[in-house]
Structures are given as structure tokens and as C-alpha cells.
Design a protein around this nucleic acid. Structure first.
Lengths: 352, 352
DNA sequence: CTGAAAGCGCTTACAG
DNA sequence: CTGAAAGCGCTTACAG
């Protein structure tokens, strides 16, 4: 009771926040003991522990993270670096990444880690020293723009012994640093579906090159599956695009302008597919009647567009969880296996 | 040259990261001078400054944020606390908040602040001690679930002298802590538009109560504008809903089931509107022919649905910037004015 | 089980 | 312009 009164009155007089010394004073123990009690060390007497916790609560005490991080040399924080394609509209973020962000945030919370979020332009000299400056114990990298440029930056991280994991992009000789969707397998699913629908005169839109390894893998799975049926995807029926609606729209328009004929279209991403559908419809081409369209990602918009979009789903919830889990394992210095997540075909109106 | 060689060979031998003492050693100056030089203090000789920076770069030195934060008692970090409606699907985050997250992240980067992101369930005992533990200098609060419950939690923040700003929700006697869209004005825009379209037999879907002050304000603006024309929005034509597609769908179905007639519908959010359109279409009601629909937010999906959705846009880019600006001003101890952002009507197919 | 003490890596008065 | 020193608030060997 008396304690109560003293503590409360002092609380009001305190400038700034309470420290472990304040608690030590009111509990009548040393500051070391307070620290131990607060961390629930088994070395502390149960009754002492109880009192310390009680007083801490009364004083609204919270351990100063800067001090404890400095002392323990770790931060219990991960940093998410999001690389955006520089050509993309400033205000819009790729919805697929946004979805990943959500699952990564949840996964971090679950593991008791904080998450720092940062957008990086692909051009700048990033890797942003989050780890060097002890703000984060490790990095999660999402997106990369041009993969060739990106590779050298990853090398810098490796040289600095920075702990990190990537989504999608593989790191030379370090498959353990990547969590990825089975993009090749996703391309296979798309091709099989179109074969089932007897729509094998296929176009492909997206960057099928080493600059975009994920898109390239999707294309390869698609191409190889058709080839096994004796069907070629000719160069004429391919158009380059980055993952935006606009880019997909213009790529499709160029195919149409060149009078390229096809009865199915596989887009490397949903955003591309949505732009493609728009271009097709404007040109009087009916989807799915004249052309079946299949996308990749299963972003929310895929269910909203008209016709709704058949697509290859990536499991973002699992992806976020795996990225965080693998990174934490790496931080602990343990070995991690390469992680390939299974894609899933979602059939909607655009291909039936 | 010789310096160069020494530094590089030492770098390889160093365990862990370089500190300012290492730099001091190689630069032949005191650690204090290194610290000053790195912070570009005018007290330091230009040549000394140059050398220190050069060596720091060579050693890949980065100031330890935990140490500098501890010393200066500030973190250059803001925390974004996102409250999600507990009834919402676990995996999906309200796209409007996601959009805000993007703009807040950019605004923070612009001001040289890091951003910690955290999802909070509305039920839990949040406010999450980010500021108490010195992890962040201030908080940005997004979303709140039930506003009545939320209020008492805000009071705790005020009692602790925590620096924070809210999106949407007002804090008693502290209008400066809120950045908000002019929700009332948005409701007025929606009503005026429907009056222009001669669709004044209006239904409203959303929680028009003190539990959801933003929805309530939208409704009031809508109702008052119609009332000025002598038109009532009867209770029969109102249905409660939280901001999800599912909730909007079921609310609309209940209106239909009760045989309520209307030729226009104002939904408190786009997600609700999208659910409403689905319910109407399933019931054979044509949009916009039989019923005009207007939403609120202008999320990306509003442009994708069929028919595309007329809506009241909230400027998320500006909103994020204002939240960050106001919070930083508050942290500096300066006064901030209440900030009300102008909404904008976006007319699409669902109402013409 | 507890306390005195060292030290994490900085920043910044203070004294030249 | 520079250096020696204090101190931010913790955690954790070390010695009882």
C-alpha cells in the first residue's frame, strides 16, 4: 500500500522515462537484479521477480531497446527492402509485393521480430546499410528490376557477410538464400491448361530473358510443355514487357499492330495480363471467345477484372513465412535448404 | 598508398564490424574527432574530415545506430501500427491501408526516418510500447475496428505522453492529432452526383454510428445533402456493414431479401460497394441500369470491377505525407493544425 | 540468489 | 580545431 503511494507520486515527478535504476530504487534491490528479474532469469528469487515486475508495470517501464541492443549486439529487427521497377508509376506499388509485405509482417510478429520497411529504387546504391548500422539483424529483398544489375549488388552483400534472403532471384552458388515460387512449374501448369482447352496457338508476353529470371522460368516451363506436344511458341508471338498493366497493354497492342494471330495468351504476371485483356478488348478481340488469357500471381485484381482472370497463384502467406524463417535460421548460423513453393492454377472466365 | 595497404590488410583481419576507434587509429586522430568528422561538424579541419571519411568508406564503416540512438535519446524511426478489423480474412489486408502504407513509407524515407511496421489486432493490448522502448520516436495509427473501444486506448497514449497521429479517428480535444479525409464532404459529393443523375431513392450500406465515425460522417454528408432537396434516407434502406466485400455482399442481400426498393446505393467503402454490386447482380438487378452504385476510397479494384465503380477518392499520397509531416512536427514539440484532406469524385460506369 | 563493475559504441559538453 | 572524459541504459561475467 505504502509502496503504491510512493511509486505513484514519484512517477508524476519523474522527468522522462523510468530506467532500471528507478525500479531498483523502489524495489530495494540492485539494478542487476532488476535486469535479471525483468528477463525472467531463473537466478532470481520468485518474490523479488514478482515485486520488480509489479513496480515496472506501475512505472510503465519498458526496456530501452537501444541500450539492450547495443549491449547484446543484436536488434531483433529485420529489414524488408522493396525494389521497385523505376519505370513504374510512383504512387502504385506492385500489389503482389504488397501482399508479400503483409505476410512478412505477420511472420515477423509471430517470431518476435520487428520489421523495418524501406523502398529502394533499383538504380540507387542500396543494401542501405541496415545491417551494417545494427538497425537490423538481416535483410529480406523483394523485387529487383533488372536482374543482371542486381547480381553485383548481391555480391556486395555477400562480401560484407550480411545476412539476407531474396524472393525470386537466385544468388550464384547460394541457393539457400532464395525463397521462390516454382516458376517453371507454374509455366507448365499454364501450358497444360491451355492444351486441355485446345488453345495451343499461344502468345507470350513478358521479359523472357536472363534480365528477368522468374519470367524466363515461367516462359520455359510453358514453352517446354507445348514443345513436348510438338507445338512451338514462335518469336513472332512473343512480346517483351515489365510487370505493369501499361507495359502489358502496349506489348499486346504491338502484337496486334503486327497482325500476329493467336488464340491463347500467357502473360508473365497478372498486371501484364490485365493490360493485355484491355488491349485485346479495345481491338475487338473477345476474351475468352477469341483468345484465352492466363496470368501469373493471383493478385486481388485478377478476381475483379472482366472477364475474371485465370492465373497461376503464388502462395504469399507461405512465402512470407518461409522468407522470415529461413532468414532467422541463417542469422542463427544454421544451414538452410533452397525453398521452392508450389504454384497452383486458378481457373476463371478468361480461359473457359 | 601505404595507408591504403595497411587499412585493407587490417580490414581482413578484423573480427566483427569497424568502430569509430578503428577509424581513429588509422586516421591518427582521436575518436571524438572521428565522430565529429563523420557528422560533418564544422569544428573539424577539412583535410581531417576528408581522411576520416575516406578511411570510413574503406573499412565499410557505418555508425552503430543503437549506440548513437542511446546517446542522443532518439531513434530517427517512426512506427506504423495497423489495426485490422478482427473479422476480416486473415490473409487479406484492406487495400486502402496498403496504399497508405506505401505513401507513408515514401514520406518517411524522404524525411530520413526509418519505418517500423506492425499489425495489431484491434482486441489486443497494443500501443505496443514502440515509443516507450525507444524503438520509435512516434507512432502512426491506421484503422481502429470499433471506435468506442479504440478511444480508451488512445487515452493511454495521451497519458504516457506518447507522440502519435491517427488517420481518420479523432481524439477528444486533440484535433491536431488527426489527419483525415473530409468524409462529410465526400458524402456530399456522392449525394450531389446521384441527384444530378436523378437517382434519389437511395440506400446506404455501412456502419452509420459512433462506432465508425468515418462511415458515419460520410453518411451524414450524404443524408444532409439529400435532405436539403427534401429527400429522406429511411432507416429501412440502411444496412450495417464493416469494410469488407463479404460484409457488403451480405448487407445488400438482406436489403433485397426484405424487398427494399431503391434506385441508387451509396456504400461507405469500395470493398462494401464491390460486395454490394455482386449481390445485386446475383439478384438480377442491373448496375447501373436499375441501381446506381457509388463507393468510397478509390482502391485499385474500383477500376477493375465490372461495371467499374464510381467512388469518392481519398488522396493517399498526400495523406501519408501529412501524417508523417504532422508527426515529425509534434515530435519537435511544435504545434500542428487539424488536417482535413479534400475528397474527389471519380465517376465510372456504375453510375452513368 | 544478489551486487559491484565492466563495457557495448557512440555524442557532446568541457578544457585546452 | 582537437582530445580526454563522462554518460546514454542496459546485460552479463565475476565474485561472493
Amino acid at each position: 500500500m505504502a509502496d503504491n503511494v510512493i511509486v505513484l507520486s514519484v512517477e508524476k515527478n519523474m522527468k522522462g522515462k523510468a530506467t532500471s535504476f528507478d525500479i531498483a530504487h523502489y524495489a530495494g534491490v540492485s539494478q542487476s537484479t532488476v535486469s535479471r528479474a525483468l528477463r525472467n532469469s531463473p537466478l532470481v528469487n520468485e518474490e523479488t521477480r514478482r515485486r520488480v515486475h509489479e513496480i515496472a508495470k506501475k512505472l510503465n517501464y519498458k526496456v530501452d531497446k537501444n541500450a539492450s541492443n547495443l549491449r547484446t549486439q543484436q536488434s531483433s529487427t529485420l529489414a524488408l527492402l522493396l525494389f521497385e521497377d523505376p519505370t513504374e508509376d510512383e504512387s502504385q506499388i506492385n500489389p503482389f509485393f504488397l501482399s508479400m509485405l503483409g505476410s512478412i509482417t505477420r511472420a515477423c510478429a509471430k517470431e518476435g521480430y520487428d520489421l523495418l520497411v524501406s523502398f529502394q529504387s533499383t538504380s540507387s546504391d542500396w543494401h542501405a546499410d541496415y545491417e551494417d548500422s545494427h538497425r537490423a539483424d538481416g535483410l529480406i529483398l523483394l523485387g529487383y528490376g533488372d536482374y543482371i544489375d542486381y547480381q553485383s549488388k548481391l555480391q556486395t552483400l555477400l562480401d560484407n557477410h550480411t545476412k539476407f534472403v531474396c524472393w525470386g532471384a537466385t544468388v550464384d552458388n547460394r541457393p539457400d538464400l532464395t525463397v521462390s515460387c516454382d516458376n517453371y512449374g507454374g509455366g507448365v501448369l499454364a501450358a497444360k491448361h491451355l492444351i486441355d482447352m485446345v488453345r495451343t496457338d499461344c502468345a507470350f508476353i513478358g521479359d523472357a530473358s536472363d534480365h528477368s529470371p522468374e519470367f524466363f522460368a515461367r516462359f520455359k516451363g510453358f514453352r517446354d510443355t507445348l514443345k513436348a506436344k510438338g507445338i512451338e511458341v514462335s518469336d513472332r508471338k512473343m512480346a517483351n514487357a515489365i510487370s505493369t498493366e501499361d507495359s502489358g497493354y502496349h506489348a499486346t497492342r504491338s502484337l496486334i499492330a503486327n497482325n500476329v494471330k493467336f488464340n491463347a495468351l500467357f502473360a508473365a504476371s497478372d498486371l501484364i495480363a490485365i493490360g493485355a485483356i484491355k488491349a485485346l478488348q479495345e481491338a475487338g478481340v473477345r476474351v475468352p471467345h477469341d483468345v484465352h488469357v492466363v496470368g501469373f500471381d493471383n493478385i486481388a485484381a485478377a478476381g475483379y477484372v472482366s472477364p475474371s482472370l485465370t492465373t497461376v497463384q503464388q502462395n504469399t502467406t507461405l512465402a512470407g513465412q518461409m522468407l522470415v524463417d529461413n532468414l532467422l535460421t541463417l542469422i542463427r548460423g544454421e544451414a538452410v535448404a533452397s525453398t521452392l513453393l508450389p504454384p497452383k492454377l486458378i481457373i476463371r472466365q478468361s480461359s473457359r
